[in-house]
Amino acid sequence: MGFESIQLRGSPSGKIVQKAFVHPGLDADEIAIKITHSGLCYTDVHYSTTDMVLGHEGVGIVQSIGSSVSSVKPGDRVGWGYSNKTCQRCDPCLRGEDNFCADKQFFGEADFDVGSLETITVRKEQWLFKVPEGMSSEDAAPLMCGGSTVWTPLINHVKPYHRVGIVGIGGLGHLAIQFASKMGADVVVFSASESKRAEALQLGANEFYATKGVADYTTLGITKPIDRLIISSSAKVDLSLFYPFLSKQAMVIPLSVGGGDLTVPYGPTVLNGMQVSGSIIASRFMQIKALDFAARNGIHVVVEKFPMTLEGANAALEKLKEGKMRYRAVLFKD
């Protein structure tokens, strides 16, 4: 038995189009889900010219399960992100770092007929996560991608005694502030917009520095060195501006994805033992822990809501392209 779905897909024009599709019957490890919410992030803009179902921050209700599925049952609320399947045999998988699997099936790379902007989807059990009781689906959907993107490097590299600089208050930055603050870190925010000061402090920042028009960041009056610098801004950042007040052996962690080169001051990097560490979405273990931590600590996503219709999806996509979203887009079914 197949599952009929109305899908919102990319097209060569960059506009989202609507198509009918029938998912085949379930394999033993597959689950059919009625989608209720989907985040939309800038990755969807990148793939908007590709004929594929968009959306990779999904939340929905389990409708049917394959014969070997044991972790969920019909009626459960589940979410998912970038990944649908990993090999479980390569070195990263065996280390529990399955987000770096050599044969992963990631959004945009495989399964072009599976996404979160559709009425029904079919997913592998392996990368589905139960949404914690008490967490809204509006919060859960963006936490499947944006939330896990900031959670992983914070858990891997930040201690409660660290001063953590966060560059940019947006889709990633406003979540990084909350996670880092709830972890006990001393959070320092850098933003081009002075108007975001109050919001940054409300989210959990201890210090805020407006950088627009500032050519020398040593004039900002930063009180103490920063141990970890999280780059969550989509704009290219001149890291040399931050180096004078980074601590010895500080780490710079870029999160947003873009073209071009990342450059750092060569001498200070070597002499001060600096590190630059890339990071991608969470492993399955980390995703489960991120959801649990967010639910227990009252971490919430600032969202703009759009109906999960053709018109709503295109409106959300255009606002993302224009850089005017505050801060994550969530599409929802009535």
Rank of each mutant, 00 (worst) to 15 (best):
V164L: 06
T119N: 06
N99W: 06
G168T: 12
D103E: 14
S137D: 15
I177Q: 08
F179Q: 04
G108L: 04
G165S: 07
G170R: 14
W127T: 15
D44G: 02
I65Q: 09
I166Y: 12
V53H: 03
F106P: 01
P74Q: 05
C90G: 01
S38Y: 02
S148N: 09
T149F: 11
I155W: 00
V167H: 14
V167M: 13
Y161I: 04
Q126D: 13
Q63M: 10
D111Q: 07
K130M: 15
R89Q: 04
A176D: 08
G146A: 13
V131I: 14
P92Y: 09
G81S: 02
M135T: 09
D91R: 04
F106H: 09
L143H: 15
V131R: 06
V78H: 12
G134C: 13
A141C: 02
H56C: 08
P92D: 10
I166N: 11
G184W: 01
G39M: 08
V122M: 13
H162G: 03
W80A: 01
F106Q: 12
G170Q: 12
L40W: 12
A180W: 01
L54D: 06
V122D: 11
D51S: 08
L128C: 15
P132K: 12
G58D: 02
G147C: 10
F106L: 12
G171S: 04
S48W: 03
T149Q: 11
G60R: 08
K124E: 15
V164R: 04
V59Y: 07
I61M: 05
M52W: 03
G171D: 04
R77I: 09
S38E: 00
M183Q: 00
V131N: 13
Y161C: 03
M183A: 00
C93R: 00
P132Y: 14
H46C: 00
W127D: 13
M135W: 09
I169E: 11
G75A: 11
F179M: 07
G58Q: 02
T86N: 07
G134H: 11
C90H: 00
H162W: 08
I120E: 05
F106I: 05
S48D: 05
L172I: 07
S64Y: 10
V158Q: 00
I155N: 01
E125F: 14
G55N: 02
G58S: 01
I120R: 02
K85N: 07
G108S: 06
D103R: 15
I120C: 09
I166V: 12
T50K: 04
R163P: 08
T152S: 15
